[in-house]
Write a protein that binds this DNA or RNA. Structure first.
Lengths: 193, 193
DNA sequence: CAGATAAGTCACCATTTGATGACTTGGCAC
DNA sequence: GTGCCAAGTCATCAAATGGTGACTTATCTG
């Protein structure tokens, strides 16, 4: 709870960059947990240990803070395209390590009542991996199949981190991967003709 | 916008049951679209064409209204267990007909920042179909496989109605069903050993 | 140390929120 | 018609919200 968050204890007080970062980290956590409407600027500021007014100084508005907090910084993972699905699943599964809660996509999903958030979610999913999946299938249904696989991945993520279904939430990653692999193959597999 | 909603035009004004029903219908729509925190009691009342104070008269609190609005009335569909997955998929797909938007599960998902809503969602998914799915698979992984299938279904629903991915949102149900059937088979299929 | 500049604080505003309770009014029994 | 009771209205409350701007204070430069 102190790695990237909060204010770095006592090295240089009054550090613009550090304060901004603390605010952003707090926002990511809170927004992911409760959505845009479930969190007030005072909440975020309190979690960051900072004065609420600074949010407006550094970000302009609550909306702007949210938008930035919900943007997933994309390190261009260049794994072979064929490994992408499993790689992403591992990202979802790697437990409380990180990706589980406080994932930006969760914040977006929980705030999807706002059109702006919904669009951001849509874009991030398409550019994030759906476009990549589409190259793994072929035939006229390639794109549809890609999106079905994406739906599976999204469903697993949501089931684990928000619904928290008993088995899936706690299962050994290896077992999940096994079933997932079979389903992914079925999703991408060519037409049965 | 008048089938089940709003106030029945002029037959009997001052009808307790009708007013309550109008409020509930309006609440279902608004909560499903924007989540519990994105909707005020005044919003709901306005959509129902009714005074906001009546919400408290008839439901006691906003929370109680939400809880009732987000409860899916379960007509005990007794299709053969094996047909359940496809049946549910059809429910999700049957387009703007109904289940798409304003589905109670959507309201719960969008409000899942509240622990109470999250638990309600969890319960409704388990009792709603996960328990049923578990009987379709066997082996020690049966329950996990059931939940994976549930995740797929949930993912498809979310992808269609909130993310609104280009293909899946508009695809011909028959094509979706085909891919889904293959994935479902893979999910439930016994251990590869 | 003096002063300037950026970082942080604070009091405050207008609006919206959930909720309450006293009031008015429609419609039925007699 | 006359009352009565339930259904509906209204003014209002306290708290919380996003947002602003004037103020204070730390820190670095000279």
């Amino acid at each position: 709870m102190s790695t990237t968050g909060d204010l770095p204890a006592r090295g240089r007080r009054r550090d613009r960059a550090a304060t901004r970062a603390a605010l952003l980290a707090a926002a990511r956590r809170r927004f992911a947990a409760h959505g845009m409407d479930g969190v007030s600027v005072r909440d975020v500021a309190a979690e960051a240990g900072v004065d609420p007014a600074l949010i407006f100084r550094y970000f302009g508005s609550k909306q702007a803070l949210f938008t930035e907090a919900a943007t997933v910084e994309r390190d261009p993972v260049d794994v072979p395209a064929a490994d992408l699905p499993l790689q992403l699943l591992r990202g979802v599964l790697d437990g409380a390590g990180r990706s589980g809660a406080d994932h930006p996509l969760l914040a977006l999903l929980r705030s999807s009542g706002h059109e702006q958030a919904r669009l951001q979610l849509q874009r991030q999913m398409c550019e994030g991996f759906l476009d990549g999946f589409a190259e793994l299938a072929d035939g006229p249904d390639a794109r549809l199949r890609a999106e079905m696989l994406g739906a599976l991945l999204l469903g697993i993520s949501v089931t684990r981190s928000v619904v928290r279904t008993p088995e899936l939430a706690a299962a050994d990653p290896a077992r999940v991967e096994e079933v997932f692999a079979a389903m992914a193959r079925a999703a991408l597999g060519g037409p049965p003709a």
